[in-house]
Write a protein that binds this DNA or RNA. Structure first.
Length: 421
RNA sequence: GUGAGCGUGGCCAAGCGGUAAGGCGCCUGACUGUGGCUCAGGAGAUCGAGGGUUCGAAUCCCUUCGCUCACCCCA
């Protein structure tokens, strides 16, 4: 075979569609219930948006981005995450003049140059949500609630919600210093990656999963951000937990939960399915109070999440949480025999379609048996048989496939007959 | 980017050095106009690609591409 899918991409075949329709319908309904309107942004943006917004030092921007010059030499990047473009749109369209916070949701493809494996693709799709313009912890709770309701409504069982606070510019520097002090005397025992992170991104050391070095031990005994939050952040986190308790949403605090993008402040959270696995996070997000300002706007708080549709579907299938919607059966297949019938069949099909029915023509050259088999294989509700006798009578045999009943019906009455049943 | 396993017709899958089983699906036929069951037949792969070893390779070796899993990262 000469051409194959580019690595890490996949075709969504007709049989896959019911799953996508199901997940997006559930997402849309939850977005509607929470008052989050839809926004669509371009698939590509100026490269600078993500360099500035997501952070130069992050893996995503540093080595996972699809960036290239267009024909004018402009550096273009295929959207590697959903938040920065929405914030750009918020600024560009003066949404600070709307009632705050501005609540939006989106569905979009995401591109990251990664090594693909199950649940991790180079092009994947996210359902995302952003609430921009209000820093109150009640908004954090609302967004988490929306994410939780969404995944619950999909029918997924055994999900867990992890939350954490990673502080803000007022307290994080002090925490980072404390964290480094903790590592300094035993830095030689940490893995090479953590030794690198020590300088470049200490927070990420908490995320280390290696067991062949002292990392796990170091992480377990490390100071916790939640113990060193400044008064404002601590208050924020306390209120958030109160709201979550009031909502009755089960959660646990994971003090080692950090996010890979630079713009996060205070609240971060993830929803995980019960099965263990590397690519398990099904929904993740957090607060990004500094992002809008980084993009050139006035200081504006925001919070949101992204949720990977492919991973969600993977889990829905694995748990058999929802049966795929009945495969798209057609209303009628038209079977024609003889010389005159095919032309009349074509016209009949056209008329029925205009009456709102889904109609497929069986191949006229095939035997009656063959055409009937085809109708059966397509799961048709009715088969319309049109042969010389019917042509002469100006009628068609309408066969109900389930019952096998068949009756002759005048051509001009077929549409109403089928619509009625 | 690192490591490991795998790659046979549309799908699943035998064969593991002598020149490609089987199943599903598809098509045809079984009183010349009636399907879903059954039966019979048919089309369809040179074994991911390229190179090498050998008298001979899907079966051994190398390279490459892809898939899967773990690391990493994240949705």
């Amino acid at each position: 075979m000469q051409f194959r899918l580019p690595r890490g991409t996949q075709d969504r075949l007709p049989d896959d569609q019911p799953w996508w329709e199901y997940v997006t319908a559930v997402a849309q309904e939850q977005a509607r219930r929470f008052g989050y309107g839809r926004i669509d942004t371009p698939v590509f943006e100026h490269a600078g948006l993500f360099q500035r917004g997501v952070g130069e030092g992050t893996d995503i921007v540093e080595k996972e981005t699809y960036t290239f010059p267009d024909r004018s030499g402009e550096e273009i990047t295929l959207r590697p995450e959903g938040t920065a473009p929405v914030c750009r749109a918020y600024l560009e369209h003066g949404m600070h003049n709307l009632p705050q916070p501005v609540r939006m949701h989106y569905f979009c493809p995401i591109f990251r140059y990664e090594r693909p494996q199950a649940g991790r693709l180079r092009q994947h799709h996210q359902f995302g949500v952003e609430a921009i313009g209000d820093g109150d912890p009640s908004v954090d709770a609302e967004v988490i609630d929306l994410g939780w309701r969404f995944t619950q409504a999909l029918g997924l069982k055994g999900l867990s919600l992890a939350v954490n606070s990673i502080g803000d510019p007022a307290c994080r520097p002090d925490y980072l210093a404390a964290l480094k002090d903790h590592y300094t005397p035993r830095l030689g025992e940490a893995c090479p990656d953590c030794r690198m992170r020590y300088d470049r991104n200490p927070l990420r050391m908490l995320d280390c999963k290696r067991t062949d070095f002292a990392c796990q031990d170091l992480v377990a005994s490390a100071p916790r951000m939640t113990d060193l939050l400044c008064a404002d952040c601590d208050d924020h986190f306390t209120k958030l937990r109160r709201y979550l308790d009031a909502l009755g949403i089960p959660y646990f605090i994971n003090p080692t939960l950090v996010r890979g993008l630079d713009y996060y402040t205070r609240t971060v959270f993830e929803i995980l399915p019960p099965e263990e696995g590397a690519q398990s996070v099904v929904l993740g997000g957090g607060r990004y109070d500094g992002l809008i300002e980084q993009l050139g706007g006035r200081p504006t708080p925001g919070i949101g999440f992204g949720s990977g549709l492919e991973r969600l579907i993977l889990n829905v299938k694995r748990q058999e949480a929802a049966a795929p919607v009945e495969s798209s059966a057609v209303d009628a297949v038209i079977v024609s025999l003889g010389d005159a019938a095919p032309a009349i069949a074509v016209r009949l099909a056209s008329d029925l379609r205009q009456a709102g029915l889904s109609v497929v023509l069986a191949q006229p050259g095939r035997s009656l048996r063959g055409q009937m088999r085809h109708a059966s294989a397509l799961n048709a509700r009715y088969t319309l048989v049109l042969g010389d006798a019917e042509v002469a009578a100006g009628a068609v045999q309408v066969k109900t496939m389930d019952s096998g009943e068949q009756r002759e019906t005048p051509l001009d009455e077929v549409a109403t007959a089928l619509n009625r049943r």
